[in-house]
Amino acid sequence: MTDVSIKISHKSYLSPDAEEQKTVIKNLDISLKSGEFVCLVGPSGCGKTTLLNTLSGLDKKYQGSINFGENDIQANIGYVFQNPRLLPWRTVRENLALATNASDDVLEPLLELMKLTDVQNSYPEQLSLGMSRRVAIIRAFAVDPELLLMDEPFVSLDPPTARQVRQLLIELWTNRPHTILFVTHNLREAIALADRLIFLSASPMSVVTEIPVPIARNQRLNESEIESFRAKIFSDFPEIASLV
């Protein structure tokens, strides 16, 4: 694994209605340490998904550089989209094998860890949303990515299921540490997961502030710890209240 450096000086797109270039990202500078879990927190529509698409190589039209260690070549990226994006006509196992080319030795422990062994031969339509999202997480981990992007992967899950999948994600990440960039607008979720929080401004997006999360990993299930740190952030950085 390598450190990741993201410097995007300018990213815009042609707005379909206004027929003019709209600047989405301006002077964005983010560095990720190898194996770090970083949450990006910002208001809806600020350009978080655009940033992830840029990092994943899906969108190549930007000014700036994205470096993985010494290289500026496209690294191996895992991407957990907002929707699981599984092929409905392939079973869970086939979806994983197609996307990752991973061997059984890699996939089976992952399926077991995410409690999906029993449904590996089911089709996505036969799974609950929570299960589908777990499959999408396995897919991203199985490519052994140098950077793992997660775009609000627990949105629209009910709170108990979201909590369960978050817990499984942390177990997986502890077992197989990867550098993760996790997008959310849920500050409690971000505190529960991240080593460091990066707050982003509204469009055009740039970094407002970065805050390390000092809560020990074994204390992250303690909701009072999460709440007290959340209150501390709002008191120390009042400008953040408008971003979450």
Partner: peptide, 19 residues
């Protein structure tokens, strides 16, 4: 969305067409 997923996970042209 599925086309982007295939692109992101580097399916390649033939695999993308077939699957």
């Amino acid at each position: 969305d599925l086309m982007e997923m295939a692109d992101c996970y580097r399916f390649g042209k033939w695999k993308t067409f077939l699957h």
